[in-house]
Each structure stands twice: as C-alpha cells, then as structure tokens.
Design a protein around this nucleic acid. Sequence first.
DNA 1: CATCAGATATGAAACCTTTCAATCGTCAAT
DNA 2: ATTGACGATTGAAAGGTTTCATATCTGATG
Lengths: 359, 359
Amino acid sequence: MTNSDRPTGASAPSVKDVAAAAGVSLGTVSNVLNRPERVSPRTRERVERAMAGLGFVRNESARQLRAGRSRVLAYVMLDGSNPFFSDVARGIEDVAERRELSVFLCNSDQVAEREDAYLSLLEQQRVLGVLITPVDPENPALAGLTRRGTHVVVVDRTRSGDTHCSVAVDDVLGGRLAVEHLLDLGHRRIAFVGGPEQIGQVRDRRSGARAALESAGLPADSLVDVATEGLTVEAGRGAGARIAGMSGRRRPTGVFCANDLVALGLLQQCVALGVRVPEELAIVGYDDIDFAAAAAVPLTSVRQPRRELGRKAAELLLDETTSPDHVHQQVVFQPELVARASTRGMAGRTTPQRPEPVP
Amino acid sequence: MTNSDRPTGASAPSVKDVAAAAGVSLGTVSNVLNRPERVSPRTRERVERAMAGLGFVRNESARQLRAGRSRVLAYVMLDGSNPFFSDVARGIEDVAERRELSVFLCNSDQVAEREDAYLSLLEQQRVLGVLITPVDPENPALAGLTRRGTHVVVVDRTRSGDTHCSVAVDDVLGGRLAVEHLLDLGHRRIAFVGGPEQIGQVRDRRSGARAALESAGLPADSLVDVATEGLTVEAGRGAGARIAGMSGRRRPTGVFCANDLVALGLLQQCVALGVRVPEELAIVGYDDIDFAAAAAVPLTSVRQPRRELGRKAAELLLDETTSPDHVHQQVVFQPELVARASTRGMAGRTTPQRPEPVP
DNA sequence: CATCAGATATGAAACCTTTCAATCGTCAAT
DNA sequence: ATTGACGATTGAAAGGTTTCATATCTGATG
C-alpha cells in the first residue's frame, strides 16, 4: 500500500510536487508521462515511484487547456430511455474505444432547452466533436457550433444544405414500407400514431405513410392521425385507449406507430381493453428494438441498422476532425421491414387464424 | 447575424480578445461574466456586444483549472442498454438539473476494464463526484478515488465498511419475495437464471431465493441454477432454450430471473419453443422495467424505485461535496413484488385458466 | 476648492501541463 | 587533451480564466 492518503483540505499533487519528490525538474516528469523513451531508466523509475507514492493524478483540464482540444466525443441522445439510442451510442463507443477516446453521453429527453444547454456546455468543454440526434435538425444552435469550429455530425436525421455530415436511415422509405405492408394485407383504414410534430422522424415517417397511400391510389388524407405528446410507452398507452374507444366502424384496422415504444404501449393497452391484435387491429412499429420481438404479440417493425449508424457517424466525425480535405457527407441507410405476428397472425397460437381484415 | 464566422485555423477568441475589442481590461470581461452587477451598465453592454461579435465561448478547461473542480457529475452505468439504468440516470439528472450541474453518462457494459478506464478518466477530469453501479463493489479502484479525494457514491449496491455512501434496494429481500411468490403458487421445482457470479445483484438475488426455500423447509440446494453469461435479452433466450429442452419431469415449473431482460428473452424463447407460460412454466423477473408489463405474457417482476434511487444517490453525493460534517450513509430501499400473468394465469384470455401447477 | 467615499476598472498572479530551445554531462574519436 | 556528437535533463513560456489588491474616476461633502 503506497502512502497516497490525502487528508481533506490538501490539494492534489501536481507534476511540480512529483518533480520535487523525485529530485528532478518538472519537465522531466512530463517527459516520463509523454515520452518515456527519452528518459533514462533510472530517472524514470524514480519518477514513477514518486508518482505512485504521492498518488499523482494527471489534471485533464490543464492538459486540455494546453492542447486546445479534449479527447472526448459527446453524443446528445434524443431519448435516453429508448433502447434505439443506446444501441446507436454503443456503435459510437465502438469507434471511440478503438481510437482511445471517451464518449460523453447526454440526454436531451426531447426537450429543446436541455439540448441547447448541453450543446453550450459541450462547446465550452471544447470536446473533439458532437454527435447529436436533435429535437429539431434546423436548430440554429447547431450551425452556431459549426461556425465557431466545433465539429457536429447529425445522427438519424438528414439536414438540408451541407453544413455538416449526417447519418440517417431513410425514414420516408421506412414509413412507406410500413404502410405498404398494411395495404398488402388488405387494410384500408390506416392510422399513424406519433408526435409531436417538431420531431423530424415523425414528419418523415408520416410522409412516407401518406406516399404509400397515394401510390396505392388512395387519398393521402385518408391516413387517420393520432397525435401523441411524445414517443414513449406511456404515450402509446394513451393512443391505444383512444383507438380502442373508437366505434368499430370508425376504428382503423391497421396502425403504424412512429416508433416501437409507442407501438408497445399501444399494443398493451389495446390488448388490455379487449381489442384483438392483429385480428381487429394490425400494428407496425419502428426501430425493431430487442423488445419488439418479445412483446405481447411479437411486433412487426421497421428495422434500422442502429449500431452501424453510430459507428458510421463517429467515423465521419473523426474524419472531419482529422483530415484537412474532409468533405461533408450525407449517408443514408436503408430500413427493412420485419414482419411478425402483430400484422400477420398469432404465431404460436394453437388455432391459427387468417389475418385478413375487412377491406 | 453577428460577424462571428471563424475561418479554419483561427483559434477561438479568449477573454483577452474580447477585452481588446471592447477596449477594457480582461479583468472587466471576467467581471461581466461572473459578477455583472459590479460593472457599469454602459461597459457591460459594450463587453457583451464584443462577445457576441466575436462569437466568444468560455473555455471550461481554463475555468476548471482555476477553480480546481468541475461542474460535472458522472454516472458509470453497468449496462447502458438496460432501461433500469437509464431510469436511475434520469433520477440523477433530476437532481443535477436543479443545481445547474451536468451529468456525464458512461457505460461500463459490465466490463471491469472499461469501468476502470472510465474511473481513471473521470478522476483526471476532476469531476465533482462519481456515481457508479460497479461490476464488483469491492473494486479497489473505488477506494483509490475516495482516498485521493474524489467523492464516490455506489448505486444499487451496498458495500461493506463505510468508505462511501451507497444507495441500494434490498436484493436479498427481492429474491426472497420472488421465490416466496412462486412457492405460494405451489411450485417446488424452481430455477434461478442469471450470471455471471461476480455481479453482486446476481449473488444477492440468488441468496434471497435460497433463503426463501429454506424458510419453506426445502433444501437451499434444490434451487436449480441456470448460469448465463450476462444479464441480457440474448442471454435469456439462451437460458430459455436450455430450459425448454429439459425433459418434462426434470424441467422446473417456476423460474426466477436475475433481471427483466433475461426474463423477457427467456419468455420469448420458451413461448417460441412451445412451452406454455405460466401453465408449464411460471416466470418472475426483476426491476419491473416498462417493457415487463408489455411482454408476450405480462411479466411478474420485483419492482425497484429506480428514479428515486438515482435521486437519493445524487443527493448524497452533493451533500458529501458540500457539507463538511458529512457522514456516510447506506440507504436501502425496499423492493415490491408486482404479480402479473406470467405467474398468475393468462390475463385477457377468453378462457381463464387456473395457474396451479403440479406441486 | 480640497478631500473623501464609493463605485468602477485594472493588471498581475495563480492554476497545471506541455513543449522546445538550451544546457549539461559523457564518451568516442582525433 | 581537445573537440564533437549525442543522449539526458532543464527552465521558461504559453494556454484562458478567475481573483484580489490596487488604482482611477465620479460626485458629493465640508
């Protein structure tokens, strides 16, 4: 056990203290830390012993101040409790780890003010770069960061213009896939559940849904809009109650939810209220989170390459910070529909049923 | 639009630049930033205009260097993709927000090396304090931080000794509740699913389970142990396959899973392989995450006050950093069993069934 | 008109690390 | 013995912010 106990009040030892203890100059201590090969083994040993004895811990603030930049990436998540975003974060961590960088996770929780507060903080921290799934991709604060020299990559959104890189999945296509699937199954009264309107994902997925209706020769306005306050399980439950409460002739036969959380909440509430899924109501979610497959009725969902999304975003960011001739890119991944029992029929049921609803 | 564009290469403006632009000393700029009431309105206005014009952003590293401490709390999560921990994080954020602090979320992903790397980084960052749900609460690195003056609060674990504060839920009691519930329903062949052994939650919950058996006059060793590699949905699926594969006479009739992720995976796999839940297999999870209620068969689970856990932990940490006469506390919350269909019977089934299995 | 109080503004020092040009010491070659 | 070369070490400067003791100014009071 080294003698590194520090009674309250004494401040942390600095390179200066280490230098004094080892009887060398502070430049030498720094060399031990940063270019050990330039220091003779004898001296190095002595310095290392002094560091251990004093319990020396490098002061990252001072390093950063000197270096001008930190070794930290930040990801501002739209919703920390949505597994979709933690999966994206994992992808970012994969890349960061390989480059010996750390990742600072922030949760805007879909609140614009929180997002702005975090962006401001991160800019002050002089982080290496910011990855963000913004509440609103047109948030002027993003342009501000870029203008002042902090690199920003937008995740899960595309932005008009080429002010920064972005990585996204084609949400319009995703919405189209979801609704085409419902149309293929014969549904004609289809609802879209999600909100609020500011969230781009919501807009795009809905617009894809409308496009699918139009391609099928139906008026886009026939899409029943069920607005929610947010994209949470709780919001989904609320929407479920509203839909279950509709009279049989008005109630949609198929719903497309803006994400899986909403779909799961809606599913749970509908089942609890006696609406059979998918016989009376077919449900399509979005994101294909792990829980989607484990739901009351395994959930049909639109799958996105979540982890890959994070990886690509981090790579773009690092390229931007590293190579001088970087060109902004807008990478768009393709989503994929995963059909399961919530639209198809009851998997595992002893009496299989045809899911065809009344057209 | 202010003229704050900065061509690549030019470094960010500092207080010095602002001072020059406004024609005042740099001390005055600092006063505008920190004690605006001491600056005459005219000067203040001039300085603020200069800051806006130059696109001045405070350098947090330099502030910290001067102040010695940062305004950031960190929470090192055991598993970023487990909603339990994001809920705890939310509780922490609640408290931090109120005090104008920020929260740095880190994900050890149950890897001890990652945990140590983050702890080291955070100590170097001189964060205000560290909240952590450790892979192993006896990790000596924790004692190291405390010894060198960084405050640490352990979340969701208790630690022997009183080296730091901790907030936990009584996992032994939770395990006992879960298994008592199964015993009450008549189950006698009961399995515990979870792992790895190093994780304290796993040990405690299992030990509570064994205690329940003993209290019921059964040998503790009659608890069938199904070890998993981790506490994930995927691990649960694997365990589900193993259990479903057992012959009818050897297969347990009730299982208690170390957390909900494992329980959901297990549930899904068992249902897929044709094992009826709860008729042939009753399942109890742990954590009562939102998804538990929305599962294939709504999941009986042991509920913990997750958000409250985070709040209390953050409060303890802040008390520790603020009040000089702080005394370390070990706060223990009580868990609560929430019975649902996975042990009781099929809720919402048209033909209700008695869940009583063969004893 | 001189003095003083109070309100404002200033400039230097400190925080800790890193870097780099300069110095020191040693050994080999001349 | 002198020089040169080279490896090891040094010391000062820089980086941006905050603080605090000091200086300056304004206006009022005697």
